[in-house]
């Protein structure tokens, strides 16, 4: 008596790496800055996080049900989008606006294009830019509970006021929920590097370019350039949003070009744009250029010669 054996095409073993595990790692890496946001801006920030994550997951769930697609919320990517969007919003954003932004991110940017992996631009970034244009509430940042400051560090620094480096590192400044505490963000970034979810290329090229370009524009005032690098959404964007697989290049060289481009655009907008911050726009523009970067920097075939 012979039992039926399973027939499969090689390879017959798998590393067990999965989209879900990668997304879980991103969620874990974002935990420190989420906690820091709650400490700095109070519990209202957790309400924003809860609304964004719930709205993202629910809208993907319902979309898949309505269009009769295989359910995908289990891959956790919708939760990542929700969390990232929340961390890019000020703690005092009206919750209905946060929900609308989440809906936009998942339905318009992601699901309509075919769901995970098929989106052209990063959902969280695009939703944030959409909200920036659609709602005035995003232009006024929230401030730490015990702070008397009246401007975000980017605005402060642009006006020539000094900002304590310690405040920038610990996040005791105005801004979006998850963007202010550099220490917590770097902790998460290092986690992603150690877990090999991301490589160093994009964050280093992005932050490095921003630093060097700023340094040149600010007459080589290293302290000021460093403060500007630690201000705004640069660290959050460079480690967690520019590194989105779907919308960034796959080769090391492509990643470096992507990072340099994003850094240049960030500084251009910060210096001469009408918005104080340019990280979201920079990533969005590089997302759009990504297919071209990717095809120009594709790996050469072994023994392929010219062609």
């Amino acid at each position: 008596m012979e039992n039926k054996l399973h027939i499969s095409v090689s390879p017959h073993i798998h590393s067990k790496r999965s989209t879900q595990k990668i997304m879980l790692d991103v969620l874990i890496a974002l935990l420190p800055t989420t906690i820091a946001g709650a400490v700095i801006f109070g519990v209202s920030s957790l309400a924003v996080v809860a609304v964004c994550v719930a709205a993202c997951v629910l809208s993907e769930l319902l979309f898949n049900i309505i269009v009769k697609k295989q359910q995908t919320i289990g891959d956790l990517s919708a939760a990542v989008t929700g969390l990232l969007l929340a961390l890019n919003l000020p703690a005092n954003v009206p919750l209905w606006q946060a929900a609308v932004g989440s809906l936009f991110a998942i339905i318009i940017v992601k699901c309509i294009f075919g769901g995970i992996g098929r989106n052209v631009v990063n959902p969280a970034i695009t939703a944030r830019v959409f909200m920036l244009v659609a709602f005035s509430s995003l232009t006024s940042a929230a401030f730490p509970l015990d702070s008397t400051a009246g401007a975000t560090p980017l605005v402060d620094l642009a006006e020539g006021n000094a900002v304590e480096l310690k405040d920038l590192l610990l996040g005791n400044v105005g801004g979006a929920i998850g963007e202010t505490c550099a220490v917590a963000l770097l902790l998460g970034g290092v986690y992603l590097l150690i877990k090999r979810v991301i490589t160093w290329h994009i964050p280093v090229a992005f932050i490095g370019t921003t630093f060097l370009f700023t340094l040149v524009l600010k007459d080589f005032d290293a302290m000021l350039a460093l403060s500007l690098v630690l201000s705004g959404g640069l660290i959050l964007g460079a480690f967690f949003m520019a590194t989105d697989y779907v919308t960034s290049p796959t080769t090391p060289l492509g990643k470096i070009i992507f990072g340099i481009g994003a850094g240049l655009i960030t500084v251009l907008i910060r210096e001469w744009g009408i918005y104080p911050e340019g990280v979201s726009f920079a990533i969005l523009i590089m997302n759009i250029l990504n297919p071209y970067i990717d095809s120009l920097t594709a790996r050469k075939l072994f023994g392929g010669g010219k062609k």
Partner: peptide
């Protein structure tokens, strides 16, 4: 099977650089 998330691991791991 799920959607490709364009992580690029397949190209990086390929001995010959095939996509």
């Amino acid at each position: 099977e799920t959607n490709c998330i364009r992580c690029g691991t397949c190209v990086t791991n390929c001995p010959f650089g095939i996509s």
